[in-house]
Amino acid sequence: MLENIKEWFRPESIAETVEIIANGNAIPYAGGTGSRSARALGLIDLRRLNLDYIREENDWVAIGAGTSFNKIANYQWSDSRHILALALGQAASNPLRNLITIGGSLAFRPAWSNVPTPLLALGASVKVAGAPATEYPIADFLHLKRNSKFFITEVKVPPAPGYGVYHRFARTRFDYAALDLAVYIAIRSDTIEICRIAVGNLIPVARRLAELEKNLTGLKISDSGISEILKAVDLKPLKNSNFSREFLLNMLKTELVRAFTQIREQIYAN
């Protein structure tokens, strides 16, 4: 029982929702799993705003903020955007994945959500309504304050005709990930043309490894030096009560090498 909740608002449009957020002491409610510790006096029901959809628009895919993890995980992705499905299909548990929404996960950014890392590797963007209404590249969005007076309406994911891999490392399936990794590679004539590598959970805010990407772009995918470049990655992992920082950094290097092995296997299988 959330004793503090006294009132529900049921807006019928995005504009009305933005107005309620701006004026009142109420927070948005969609899946509900992030609202349990809310100190707000009111909740704004987003479930009737028709934000539960996955639409293909000019090769891009638009995912409504109210779309559940299971709906995304079970969608028939036709290209490497399937790494988003892989990530969300491993988050939390089946009954929770029917509740948790992609918009809520981006708003609250809980440790278990797995959402930012694949979106970074896929070059996604996040549409928000509010002041100002705009569309942010996912990397910029992740640096916005969590309590900003806007709400997320849609996530847009560009086509991903290349090769993608998503890996998540945790003690058990249901545990928070100690690290997750998403890699997207586009190849032309055996040469790496686009390289996006994103890591999450290991660091405070998920991000791409820009220097590593730069060092790999332009190399032949079969280049035997790639493993050495991957093993040279350096960052300072967050303190973790289960694993030492040294272990986590070594695990990241191992997962990177595994990811590239998996990508080569995908390429050679074609």
Binding site: L2, I5, W8, Y29, G31, G32, T33, S35, R36, L43, D45, R47, N70, S93, N94, P95, L96, N98, L99
Partner: peptide, 21 residues
Amino acid sequence: GACVVLLNEKPVNSCQVLTAA
């Protein structure tokens, strides 16, 4: 998972759902 029910035919944790919603 002890509180799982079907909401619109899909399993959900009823402890995580507010009835008003």
